[in-house]
Design a protein around this nucleic acid. Structure first.
Lengths: 160, 160
DNA sequence: GGTTTAAAAGGACATATGTCCTTAAATGCT
DNA sequence: AGCATTTAAGGACATATGTCCTTTTAAACC
C-alpha cells in the first residue's frame, strides 16, 4: 500500500485482517462533535483491522490509513471462517488475536483514565516514538484525548 | 457469594471465569499513585473475570468484589483448556468471550476519550443505573476518571 | 525559486477539574 | 438508642486544559 491509502474506510464492512510486515497505520473515527479521533497507531509486526467490524461483519465506524508505504499480509473473512471450521489450530489463533486486541485496549483505557496529558505523551513517545514522526500533531492529540493546544504546551515544556 | 466477598484478589492468579446469574461486581486496581481505580462494573447476565490474568495465567493486577449477595456459574481454567482441546464449539466460545471483552473495552476507551465528566456520568446512569446505588461515589468517580469533588458537582447540577 | 496552502506554535482569556478542608449525612457497632 | 467511624457534599482557591486567534514554520505546487 502507498502512503495515504485506506485499508478500510468508514461505512464499509471490514473484510480482512492484516499483519503489518512493513510500514505503519493510523486508525481513526468521528466522534459526536464530528472531530476526527485517533483510536490507535500500529506499526511493523502487529495486527491491524477494524476489529469490531471484522468480527461482527457490520459497517465500520473506523477508518484505517497508511502513514507510509506499507506491506501487509492479509487474510480474508470468509477464508478465516473456513479455517476456523476446519482447524482447531486456527480457532486458537482466532482467540489469541482477540485476546491480544483486548489487552491492547485494556492498557489504552487504563492510560486514558490515569495519566496526565504530559505522561500520556511521554508514554507514547517511549512506546511508539517512530510513529509520531509520521503523523500530524492533531492526530496525536486526539489519540491522547487532549487538544492541539495542550499538546503544543507539553512539547514546549519538554523541549526545554 | 456474599456482599464484600472477593472473586479474585490482586496478586493471585485468576483461575476462573464466571457468568453472573444474580448480583453485581466491581473490578478495580491500584494506579501508580496508590489510588483505587474502578475498571468496570458488571451485573447479571454478563461475564466477569480478571481476564488478562486468566488468559495469561499470571498474577492479577485487578481485584473483583461482590457489590451484593451474588450467584455465579464458574468455569475453571484447566477445565476450559481441556474443553478447548477437545471441542471446536468451546474454542469458538472462547473466542467469542475474548471478542466481547474487547468490544466492551473499546467502548469504554472511546467514552473516556471523548466525553465530558458529565456526559460520562449520564451514560453510566443510563447504562448501569442500578449499580450506582450499590457502590460508593469514590468508586464511580474513579471509573469515570474524575475526582470525587467533580462527581459531587455533577450530581448537584443534575439534581436541579 | 517564489508563491500559495496547510500545519504547528503560541498568546490571552474562559472553563473544567483538582486539591485541600470543613461540614453534614449515613452507616455500623455495642 | 447513642456513639464512633465512614462516606458524601460542598466552599475556596489552584491548576490544567480548552477555545479562539494570530503568528510562524513547513510543505506543496506551478
Amino acid at each position: 500500500m502507498k502512503k495515504g491509502d485506506y485499508l478500510i474506510e468508514r461505512g464499509k464492512i471490514c473484510k480482512e485482517i492484516a499483519f503489518i510486515n512493513k510500514g505503519s497505520f493510523r486508525t481513526y473515527y468521528m466522534n459526536d462533535k464530528a472531530e476526527e479521533i485517533t483510536a490507535c497507531f500500529r506499526t511493523e509486526m502487529s495486527i491491524v483491522s477494524s476489529y469490531r467490524s471484522f468480527v461482527l461483519q457490520e459497517p465500520s465506524s473506523l477508518s484505517i490509513k497508511a502513514l507510509e508505504d506499507s506491506e501487509l499480509i492479509v487474510i480474508n473473512y470468509e477464508n478465516l471462517q473456513n479455517l476456523y471450521a476446519r482447524s482447531m489450530a486456527w480457532l486458537n489463533i482466532g482467540r489469541l488475536i482477540a485476546e491480544m486486541e483486548y489487552m491492547n485496549m485494556e492498557e489504552y483505557a487504563s492510560v486514558l483514565n490515569n495519566e496526565s496529558a504530559k505522561d500520556k505523551y511521554l508514554r507514547l513517545l517511549k512506546e511508539q516514538g517512530e510513529v509520531i514522526q509520521k503523523t500530524t500533531v492533531e492526530s496525536i492529540a486526539s489519540y491522547l484525548g487532549v487538544t492541539r493546544r495542550t499538546l503544543s504546551r507539553i512539547r514546549q515544556e519538554i523541549s526545554t
